[in-house]
Deep mutational scan, measured.
Amino acid sequence: MSGNGNAAATAEENSPKMRVIRVGTRKSQLARIQTDSVVATLKASYPGLQFEIIAMSTTGDKILDTALSKIGEKSLFTKELEHALEKNEVDLVVHSLKDLPTVLPPGFTIGAICKRENPHDAVVFHPKFVGKTLETLPEKSVVGTSSLRRAAQLQRKFPHLEFRSIRGNLNTRLRKLDEQQEFSAIILATAGLQRMGWHNRVGQILHPEECMYAVGQGALGVEVRAKDQDILDLVGVLHDPETLLRCIAERAFLRHLEGGCSVPVAVHTAMKDGQLYLTGGVWSLDGSDSIQETMQATIHVPAQHEDGPEDDPQLVGITARNIPRGPQLAAQNLGISLANLLLSKGAKNILDVARQLNDAH
């Protein structure tokens, strides 16, 4: 009898209710805020589980004197976190989706994509230029951005401005803007500013005609071990179906173009009346040469937790077992079709030249 009692006690200790789920994140304040929001949602869904947040620095956090596009290494903000995932030191990792490459290392998958916040870019102005827009900034004003995508589009749109690289986390960039006289304004992701509670610093939100956004911008991705079915089931509740389908289309477009950090590629997606609209573009580094096109596809946005595919093969690095396969494939095909259209119009040449120029500098 006593033996059975011990077995029952052991089973209770090993039951999922007692389990601590370890969540990996970057150390920056924004990353911690984003991770806290994901953990809060998981806690609400699984009140019996405990969650421990483990923060670590990544290569991208450490190399702050070089433009991201020049470092010449993929997975700048993800490699150390993936290493911890691989060694079973954490069970899942919360990322900004735009930091996750469209091809993940073997053994990993994006197990959830959370509801997207505003994906557009924002302009934050130096205190002396508050009330201005990019259009009304004085001639030769210097605007800071760490992104080739932003610089290429904005140089084309605002030729009277000069664009220079600015690195560091959000706090560091804002301090550089406010305390030094080098920059009249800087460009940042609206979602990051909003998550930090800095709505009052948003001086201008850039519309798609001015600057399309990065693939996955404004959404959070939760990376897990691809074979860890328990954790895949656990994080599945975080999937937002519309965000998922938009981001599958965007990531398929980028992957098929073979774009990345070192080339200016941008997108804009919208879901309306059962249609998914995808606009994508590529630019030369100075913005003088560009190709942009829009395509659409009829896609039914499923309700969360309709029964999805059981075999769960990944699409552009994403596993969404609780979302039907048909809409996911339709979104992926839309991204591939748009990429093929741009490639047929000469996108590869623009991107190759951009890559060579970026590598040469």
Results as ranks from 00 to 15, higher is better:
263 V>D: 03
209 E>G: 08
195 R>F: 04
119 P>E: 06
348 K>G: 13
340 N>Y: 11
254 L>P: 06
95 H>F: 13
207 H>E: 14
135 E>T: 11
93 V>H: 13
285 L>P: 15
101 P>H: 12
117 E>P: 00
138 P>C: 10
47 P>L: 06
194 Q>I: 01
253 F>S: 02
140 K>V: 10
178 D>P: 01
229 Q>K: 08
155 Q>T: 11
82 E>F: 15
63 I>H: 06
213 Y>H: 14
45 S>A: 11
160 H>D: 12
61 D>G: 03
332 Q>G: 08
277 Y>E: 04
229 Q>I: 05
350 I>L: 03
213 Y>C: 07
169 N>C: 05
353 V>M: 15
38 V>K: 02
86 E>Y: 15
304 Q>R: 13
246 R>F: 04
335 G>R: 01
218 G>E: 04
125 F>L: 12
115 K>I: 08
304 Q>K: 14
226 A>Q: 13
276 L>G: 05
110 I>S: 01
246 R>Q: 14
321 R>N: 06
133 T>A: 08
146 S>A: 08
70 K>H: 10
190 T>D: 09
121 D>L: 03
238 L>V: 07
78 T>C: 14
282 V>S: 05
190 T>A: 13
102 T>H: 15
287 G>K: 01
79 K>M: 09
52 E>I: 12
92 L>T: 08
187 I>A: 08
248 I>R: 05
97 L>H: 00
238 L>N: 00
181 Q>W: 10
196 M>I: 13
271 M>N: 07
196 M>E: 05
119 P>N: 05
119 P>T: 12
167 R>T: 11
360 A>G: 14
170 L>Q: 14
111 G>M: 01
74 K>E: 02
139 E>I: 14
143 V>T: 06
250 E>S: 02
231 I>A: 15
355 R>D: 15
99 D>N: 04
154 L>A: 06
61 D>T: 02
285 L>I: 09
307 D>K: 15
281 G>M: 01
293 E>Q: 12
62 K>Y: 12
104 L>D: 05
187 I>V: 09
253 F>M: 14
112 A>P: 05
317 G>E: 00
148 L>W: 06
315 L>S: 14
121 D>E: 07
103 V>D: 09
224 V>M: 15
80 E>H: 07
41 T>D: 09
280 G>M: 00
314 Q>A: 04
179 E>C: 10
193 L>K: 00
208 P>M: 12
346 G>R: 10
99 D>S: 02
113 I>L: 13
291 I>E: 13
352 D>Q: 11
225 R>G: 02
299 I>C: 15
79 K>E: 12
183 F>I: 14
62 K>M: 10
131 G>F: 10
54 I>T: 09
300 H>P: 10
260 G>C: 15
249 A>V: 07
295 M>Q: 05
46 Y>K: 10
173 R>I: 01
190 T>K: 10
168 G>T: 01
286 D>N: 14
273 D>H: 03
243 T>I: 08
97 L>G: 01
325 R>Y: 07
184 S>R: 15
63 I>Y: 06
321 R>P: 07
359 D>S: 03
105 P>F: 14
302 P>D: 12
120 H>P: 03
222 V>S: 02
261 C>G: 03
139 E>M: 08
334 L>W: 07
304 Q>H: 08
117 E>C: 13
335 G>F: 10
244 L>M: 08
54 I>Y: 11
243 T>G: 11
175 R>M: 13
212 M>A: 03
42 L>I: 09
148 L>K: 14
316 V>K: 01
222 V>D: 02
239 H>W: 00
37 S>Y: 05
67 A>G: 09
279 T>C: 03
346 G>E: 15
280 G>F: 02
230 D>H: 00
66 T>K: 02
194 Q>P: 09
308 G>R: 07
114 C>E: 02
144 G>E: 05
295 M>F: 07
319 T>D: 07
80 E>L: 06
148 L>E: 05
320 A>D: 09
258 E>Y: 13
143 V>Q: 04
150 R>Q: 01
321 R>W: 02
49 L>G: 12
176 K>F: 13
102 T>W: 00
67 A>P: 03
246 R>D: 03
170 L>V: 11
338 L>I: 04
232 L>W: 08
318 I>G: 07
252 A>T: 14
277 Y>N: 09
308 G>N: 14
323 I>T: 08
100 L>S: 05
253 F>A: 03
288 S>F: 09
115 K>G: 13
98 K>V: 02
227 K>M: 05
71 I>M: 14
192 G>S: 13
298 T>G: 03
152 A>W: 10
341 L>P: 04
76 L>D: 12
96 S>T: 01
82 E>Q: 06
69 S>K: 14
247 C>Y: 11
51 F>S: 06
229 Q>L: 09
306 E>L: 13
37 S>D: 05
77 F>N: 02
199 H>L: 09
81 L>C: 08
288 S>L: 13
135 E>D: 12
134 L>N: 01
324 P>Y: 07
216 G>F: 05
67 A>W: 01
82 E>S: 10
325 R>F: 14
277 Y>M: 12
205 I>V: 12
48 G>H: 04
213 Y>F: 04
281 G>V: 11
142 V>R: 12
95 H>L: 09
132 K>I: 11
301 V>I: 13
292 Q>C: 12
285 L>N: 15
269 T>Y: 01
339 A>P: 00
230 D>V: 12
290 S>K: 07
218 G>I: 01
